[in-house]
Design a binder for these strands. Sequence first.
DNA 1: CCAGTATCGACTGTAAACAGTCGACTTATG
DNA 2: CATAAGTCGACTGTTTACAGTCGATACTGG
Lengths: 219, 219
Amino acid sequence: MAGLTAPLLGLEKKSLREQALSALRTAITSGELEPGRHLVETELSEMLQISRGTLREALRQLEQEGLLSAGPRGRLSVRHLDEKEIRDIYAVRAALESLAARSLCELPDRQHVTESLHKAIDAMTAATTGTLEERIESDLEFHRTLCRLTGNETLLHSWESLEGSIRMSIMFAGLEKGVSNMSVDRHKDIVGAIDTGDATLARKTILEHMDTAAANLVA
Amino acid sequence: MAGLTAPLLGLEKKSLREQALSALRTAITSGELEPGRHLVETELSEMLQISRGTLREALRQLEQEGLLSAGPRGRLSVRHLDEKEIRDIYAVRAALESLAARSLCELPDRQHVTESLHKAIDAMTAATTGTLEERIESDLEFHRTLCRLTGNETLLHSWESLEGSIRMSIMFAGLEKGVSNMSVDRHKDIVGAIDTGDATLARKTILEHMDTAAANLVA
DNA sequence: CCAGTATCGACTGTAAACAGTCGACTTATG
DNA sequence: CATAAGTCGACTGTTTACAGTCGATACTGG
């Protein structure tokens, strides 16, 4: 049994809370737990086979991410998004990602950045032959990479806190509409703009991308 | 006992979790719970006279707000901010608030907006004769109002999720440095720019305000 | 029949107890 | 003396039980 591989040494055992968080986030953003649905702690804890205390910790986080809304007496339900809310979410998303794009343009050495973004583009290209879900995942991964590459942890965290709302927006609009915003060419334009090092151009490209995306979602 | 006033009818009893959240947020952002301090659940729950379960829910939220960082084995400690992190926080803050400013310029009817902002300015003016804490509160209230007036709930929520980090940045720099960014005149400039309805000017004013603020904090 | 009161079930909020992991320290062994 | 094994305390993660609030329904009295 000698010679354990490095990945095994780095194994991370996920807590029940984290597992519940993931499962619930997926169930909500996929529509399985439908908008407006009242989440009853006792039911959910039985379904997930965890205690109510553990579940509550996960639910609190989802509430903070904007996926759940608290009704009277602390009752949590899956949030419903109307058109205005989707537009609002995309406006904030645009603000964060345009900051990311500008920040990347201002980096002294952009080579590793563009390499990583090209990899993310390749992944998007590969996903065009996959399922709608795969295309959405690769798209969101591209945008997350954009934020991550800035090295601004606060920016990445803010974006990730918005990710659930973004996913719900796509779900509300329907996956086909969502995917219509995920063309590889338009993302190549973003990378191209960043490549030029022109922060104003990069910002403008992102803002336009997000304007179009929001308009498509609410059409 | 007839004739209860409307405010009494609207009384909201805060849960222990919410009370703990407030108390902890204040203790952290004021420096009472100092950066790097390991928060031991059993100690804190005894101090606050609440159960560990209730405390955990509050701590989770503070972690998500960026005020605490999780170390090995789930141990939470008060986050320490270095200069880069402060700059990063202010960059994200600038992105959010400049979106707010641009959004306000695009509103069809800006009269009630400018009235509210002028009120916030008046409160800042009144606070100049008060304590440093009062000045910081009135400043943050001005900026929160900026975001709230847009009617974009996602934007307000994102800003509020950042507020703790903002407060900690000010605390790290020292209150005097923080207050140096809170001159009434500079905030009047922001309102003035929004008054013109020129979204580009308003955005630029905010970005400059935040650039200067960050530079002052890390100087 | 209607209004007031009582009861009960369905929750959420909270506390107390149990369980597991780790590091520091002590003890045993070669 | 150095190393390995054992023990224990200090936590965090989780479960179970208790407590309170509310709405819906049933009951009672005028």
